[in-house]
Design a protein around this nucleic acid. Structure first.
Lengths: 236, 236
DNA sequence: CGGGACCTTGATTATCTTCAATGCTAGTGG
DNA sequence: CCACTAGCATTGAAGATAATCAAGGTCCCG
């Protein structure tokens, strides 16, 4: 499917799932949500997602999207991951070349209308609360990422990221209690964790060897979740 | 002065300076600001600033405050610095033991009232815009910090932090074009930059030796600002 | 003049990166 | 069905970067 291809029937399922995990949505709100999510777009994997006009807000409907900083000399840092239900933060940051990239094939949609409508018409409703919580989670994740990169060892960093991804995928109904899909390549992981690809590979081996995870075929099985939590150093 | 000592005449000068650097404030707005900033508190250096009740917003009037994550095993990360004019972000982050510490002697004040009043009564006024810009800067700095810790070398990290601090102190009128106060100890710097104290010391020596800065007596003089900007890798 | 906080230094070790190959696997076209 | 390819994963060796350990040194303040 071509990048940026217009979708006439955007899949809002994962989005609904995530939002309602924060606050229960009424049937009326679900209708509002489905109707308000317009102009869904499909993006092939590994493609830049061009910026939307300022003032518009977009959400990820399916697939994984990365907020990426690219250096002129080739270095690269993924600042955050956007999973289904997350809002993209497209505001520029002075001094950084930021952009959004689809890490898997993905769908995004303009949610400007639903967002402002739910804020205006029912500021205390479940939908409005859910959006606020989504933003709040974003802020929290950013804080955790600073600590992760700053003070955790490669091993701890990797463990804590895996736990965060599990948590988030559980929320959106993609993961069960002890396993989750893992669509990221080791290179993508290295760009998130700020490690070299080679080192990521070795850390993953170590996690496997220590009996904490099984990592095969784009899937992670958590063999010893309590031990992994200890290894992560961050409570999460 | 005792930590938490009540101030009856909070010094709003630096706060005004910072806010008006974002948007010009009318005389009326200045009055609102000065009257609305109530219950200023003085904190001795190196003291924890107890959390305010949820829902209240506080700003730094003078001095430097750090948002600190403390690990059980002694590791520590300063997530962000709050300089005069900055708002404290006291919302908890799941998995992190966060707190605010005065890095120098400092004054903080409850600005809940002014903040909500300026939002409610004059959402398009200079004061409201200034507060929004303050929040926006906060978000931008957090993004830059992730890239800094993730992909910059110790040398680049240090250079870029110094530049950011210069920029910010210029804004609040504390620094001139080529120098600034530098109240942080090397240990505090190490907690921000996620380096060991010893290494911070060596990097600073290197920056001095390379003729980029002069660092003495709690003051940094920028001898070659263009070269420092190159060394910082981040444009800022 | 003593003490404490901060800065500086050298030596050693740990962590992580880089470089350069090699292996694996899924998809493609003959 | 079988090469062939391309992207991804893995391995070993060597080197860079930063941490740790253990002393001193400096400066300020009482």
């Amino acid at each position: 499917m071509r990048a940026g291809h217009q979708l006439h029937l955007p899949t809002t399922h994962a989005l609904e799932q995530t939002l309602s995990s924060f606050a229960p949505l009424s049937a009326a709100e679900l209708v509002v949500l489905r109707q308000g999510v317009s102009a869904g777009r499909a993006h092939a994997a590994g493609v830049q997602i061009e910026a939307a006009p300022p003032g518009t807000r977009r959400a990820v409907l399916s697939g994984w999207v990365g907020r990426v900083n690219q250096f002129p000399d080739g270095r690269r840092q993924i600042l955050s991951l956007c999973l289904p239900g997350d809002l993209l933060d497209e505001r520029p940051v002075c001094g950084l070349h930021l952009g959004h990239f689809s890490l898997t094939s993905a769908q995004t949609a303009d949610v400007t209308a639903v967002l402002s409508a739910s804020k205006r018409e029912a500021p205390d409703g479940g939908l409005a609360k859910a959006w606020r919580d989504v933003e709040d989670e974003l802020r929290e994740r950013q804080a955790r990422q600073i600590v992760r990169l700053g003070r955790l060892s490669a091993y701890e960093r990797t463990a804590s990221l895996l736990l965060e991804l599990h948590e988030r995928q559980r929320r959106s109904g993609q993961a069960d209690a002890t396993s989750m899909p893992m669509p990221l390549t080791q290179e993508m992981l290295s760009d998130i964790l700020a490690l070299s690809v080679v080192h990521v590979n070795r850390i993953l081996q170590q996690l496997r060897h220590d009996g904490l995870i099984v990592y095969r075929a784009s899937k992670v099985v958590f063999s010893d979740l309590p031990a992994l939590r200890v290894a992560a150093a961050l409570g999460l």
